[in-house]
Design a binder for these strands. Sequence first.
DNA 1: CGCAGGATTGATATTACTCAACCGTGGTGG
DNA 2: CCACCACGGTTGAGTAATATCAATCCTGCG
Lengths: 189, 189
Amino acid sequence: MSCTLSEFRKREIIFAAGDQTQKLPKLISGAAILFSILPDGRRQVLDLAGPGDFLHFESDGELDHFAEALTVCEVAWYESADLLKSQDTALFLMEQMRERLGMERRHITMLSRKSAGERLADFVNLAADCLGRDGDRFELPLTRQQIADFTGLSLETVSRTFAGWERSNVLTKIEGKTYEMRPGLPTVA
Amino acid sequence: MSCTLSEFRKREIIFAAGDQTQKLPKLISGAAILFSILPDGRRQVLDLAGPGDFLHFESDGELDHFAEALTVCEVAWYESADLLKSQDTALFLMEQMRERLGMERRHITMLSRKSAGERLADFVNLAADCLGRDGDRFELPLTRQQIADFTGLSLETVSRTFAGWERSNVLTKIEGKTYEMRPGLPTVA
DNA sequence: CGCAGGATTGATATTACTCAACCGTGGTGG
DNA sequence: CCACCACGGTTGAGTAATATCAATCCTGCG
């Protein structure tokens, strides 16, 4: 299967809403966030992506969201026609889309009725999954604002909640953006 | 393309989480809600479906959500293998999944930072689209609780918000579950 | 060293939730 | 045929959670 590879630096935009596309981008390594910009200028973070995740499924048309590299990342660009040629790869693509749909639905559930603490605990687990853990340690290469835009909270609430966790020793900042978690975070439903 | 047809009455369960499936259900007529049940017993409404919408994309495995008929509805059950055989229908299926993904992302955006009024205005528009409008009139065959479970609000807040709209004449209850809207609902982003 | 952007913290305001009582209606059975 | 019941819906009072506004603090970097 032919595809081209490209690399992005941290904070680089991988693609923007409004771009025309003919290829499907798959994240090979690193992590990215998907977001849209609302009419009032606010950003809504839609999803996190890790290695193996497709960043969009628009095979031919205009993109409706942005993707930004959270870390250095490699992206493979596939021809969607190639992927649909064989039933195997079509099935694989469908599986990918279904997983993404499941992610979005968990996101909906998280936003729907959970408290600030529960949302952030969900987020931390999700982020650790996407970005990789080293034992109990993980990195959060996102700004407070990005975390707020993912969890639907204000950045102050994000900050206060993390501070509370650090005070009660369920979370420790090791250095920079690296944290270590201990059992005791609100349960993830 | 071979497929079987079945019909459901209002409030009937079309399929349940945990069911095994080999077929993809497409709504031909009527409307349905998709929801999941959380560990604490609460229901989370994930989506509304109207004519032409697939109710899930699980081609072979266990379902993770429920579908319930909001009105009388007809459902066509397709073999997923059939749909993936030709590139045309595979592309069509992919388009359907992409649209569903877009719906979920709008849902995320709605839940993320909007006020009760904005969420319900979004919901009303979405519901009118799914369930069909007759000019400015539309039906809402959902309970207050279901609307609350979709918008992430309490049923009391849903009730109060509708009551407020009726008082200010931006929404009128015609009879039963039929409403008429007038310009003036919070803008949909 | 100084600057800029992000992060933290505090005080206050607001929104929507919770708890609780009450209403309306459709259906059932005496 | 009517009374009653059950369920969904409405309304009110009080509260709790989180947003907002504002001041200050880090930290990485030129």
